[in-house]
């Protein structure tokens, strides 16, 4: 998947108002809470077949850090 497409999808799934970039820190978003984390886990699992654990969510900060967990090779 193209990173741009990922950013667009993520913004839609997480229903955030701000335009996401790879540098956006997800936890700084007004919308970030346990439900947003659940949405992120669900979306990443559906789209990439990667299961983010609770510990992973604890470590995540920027969108790039999510990409790192999924694996850079899955993006073009």
């Amino acid at each position: 998947m193209e990173k741009q497409e990922f950013l667009k999808n993520l913004q839609e799934v997480l229903e955030v108002e701000q335009t996401l970039t790879v540098e956006t820190n997800l936890k700084d978003l007004d919308e970030w809470d346990s439900m947003t984390a659940m949405l992120l886990i669900g979306y990443v699992s559906d789209e990439f077949g990667v299961t983010l654990t609770g510990d992973n969510i604890g470590e995540i900060s920027t969108v790039q850090s999510v990409i790192d967990f999924i694996g850079e090779s899955k993006f073009s």
Partner: peptide
């Protein structure tokens, strides 16, 4: 299920 949650939630 517990794997998907952080230690605090567990």
């Amino acid at each position: 299920l517990f794997q998907q949650l952080d230690a605090k939630n567990v």
